[in-house]
Structures are given as C-alpha cells and as structure tokens.
C-alpha cells in the first residue's frame, strides 16, 4: 500500500513566501470551485423569492425551508428513481468486472496472434459512446426485446474498453513472481486469475468501480431514449422534468433542490469515504 507521505519533506521545506503563495492560490482555486455547489445547497434551502436580486447570494441570511425539496419530491417518485439508478449501476458494474478482468488478463499476460489489432479494436469503444450510435443501438436493443427495460439501459455498457485498459495496466504492475510461485505450486491459469491476480488487482477494480458507477449514475441521453415507462426511469431523466421546460419560468430553488437530490448520494459517499476512494485511485496507477 502506498505509504502516506510525511507531512513535510525531509530536507527542510520552509514556510517561505513562495509556499504561502502556493497555499493561497490553491485555496483560491478551491473556493472558486466550490461556489456553484455551495450555491446549490444555499439556494435549495432559500424560500422561493421571485424578483429577489440576491438569489445568487451564498450567505444564508434566511430561515431555511424544505419547500423546494418538497416540490421537487412531489414532481417525481424519487424512491423509484433511486432504486432504478442503483440497479442500473450495480448491474452494469457486476457484468463489467467479469468481462474486464478476463480480457484485461488476456491482454496483460497472454501472447496470442492478433493481440495488437484486437487491443486497438477494443479501444475503439472508448471513443464511440452510445450518443453517437444511438439510432443503431436502439434498433438492436428493440430486436433483443430489451426496449423499455433496465437491462436495455445496461447492455451496451457490459463491455468496457476503459476497464480492460485499466485492468491490463493493473495486471502488468503486479510482479510475475507471485504467478510463478503459484504455478510452481500447481495452480491452473484460471486459479491464477481468481486466487492470485484478482486479490492483488482489487484496488484497480475499486478505482474502475468508482469511475463506472459515477458515469452511469450521471448518464442522461441513453436512458432517456431506451426507457419509456415511468417505472423504469433513472434519476437524471427524472431531474429533467423540472430543469428542461421549454416555456418555463425560472424556479431556481426547485432546480437546485432537484440537483441536490440527484447528486447527494455520490457526494455523500465521496465525502465519507474519500480516503479510500483516493487511495484506490492512487494505487491503481502504480505498482
């Protein structure tokens, strides 16, 4: 595991003016970065105030109200939306972990004819996301009988070039000594994967899991296209109901509250487990 760095580097980093400037700059960037989300939080609790000029104020100079949340919750069945989104993310991830581990192993450790070509073939998928291929993909999904089903939302993502790439990198950073020892002990190739490589590659998988869940939690266009019944909608599609009105007047508080509801689970999870999240990211790139 990557050891935490010492607080101050040996060799005597001084708190000189350059260092203070750097800290000030970093804090400045963080301040700017956080304002839109801070505003989201403040505005979601601010009483509806049409015509107020201080809608942008980040200062909570009001009695907080949950009216915006109530209105957002009223306009969609959030329990259902959360459940569907979780099902989609979990389903995609489960299948992906299987496909990317197998393929990642093949690319990292096996030499076979056409490996280069196939690998580039895989990487094609990095670029060709469903929005580009939405019309043909929708036809395929319908032919498979998956139109308007959660499985239909998931299916195009079951193979992941990004995941295969990441797993290949991760496997490559695992020293071969482990495998050689296992082979001496009489392990078969699939035991090698399951017993030796997968446990060692877990941090890489966690990193991939985060990337995968985040991107599918946030996906909009494809679920909007595939799903038609209310029972199968996901969070982002639900959110669209109060943000994308064509002739709408502006209800910024409700938009902020709805955005909060959609983003909260991921933000909370990250806030609580950020050390694990970051550590797994840090680990995935290295030996």
């Amino acid at each position: 595991m990557a050891a935490p760095r010492p607080l101050m580097r040996a060799g005597g980093a001084r708190f000189d003016s350059g260092r203070l400037l750097a800290i000030a700059l970093l804090a400045g960037v963080a301040l700017v970065w956080s304002t839109p989300l801070l505003w989201m939080l403040v505005a979601s609790l601010r009483p509806q105030n049409f015509g107020g000029l201080d809608m942008a104020s980040l200062w909570p100079d009001f009695t907080p109200t949950l009216a915006n949340f109530a209105e957002a919750l009223e306009s969609a069945d959030f329990a259902r939306l959360y459940l569907n989104t979780i099902l989609v993310c979990a389903g995609i991830l489960a299948v992906q972990l299987a496909t990317i581990t197998l393929a990642g192993y093949a690319f990292a450790r096996l030499s076979f004819r056409g490996r280069e070509v196939v690998f580039y073939g895989f990487l094609l998928q990095l670029m060709l996301v469903p929005p580009i291929l939405i019309v043909p993909n929708l036809t395929t999904i319908t032919r498979l009988g998956l139109y308007d089903s959660l499985l239909g939302v998931m299916a195009p993502y079951f193979a992941s070039a990004f995941g295969v790439f990441l797993m290949r990198q991760t496997f490559r950073t695992i020293p071969r000594d482990f495998e050689e020892a296992a082979v001496v002990d009489g392990a078969s190739w699939w035991q090698l994967i399951w017993r030796v490589l997968v446990p060692l590659a877990r941090p890489g998988m966690v990193a991939f899991a985060i990337v995968s869940v985040v991107s599918h939690w946030n996906e909009f266009l494809w679920p909007l296209m595939v799903v038609s019944s209310l029972d199968n909608q996901t969070l982002t599609v639900g959110l669209a109901s109060f943000t994308m009105g064509a002739e709408s007047a502006s209800q910024w508080g409700v938009i902020a509250a709805g955005t909060c509801l959609v983003a909260a689970p991921l933000l909370l999870a990250f806030g609580l487990f950020q050390r694990q999240f970051v550590n797994s990211f840090l680990f995935s790139g290295v030996k």
Partner: peptide, 19 residues
C-alpha cells in the same frame, strides 16, 4: 472540493450553470 464536480451529472451541472 475540486473533485466534487466530477460526481455531478453533466445535465445537473449544466442546470446549475444556467444560473
């Protein structure tokens, strides 16, 4: 703080930036 925006759906981020 810098990582938070990554976790936001692009649709939601866009809705915020509309404001």
């Amino acid at each position: 703080v810098v990582f938070f925006p990554v976790l936001l759906p692009l649709v939601a981020a866009a809705a915020l930036f509309l404001f």
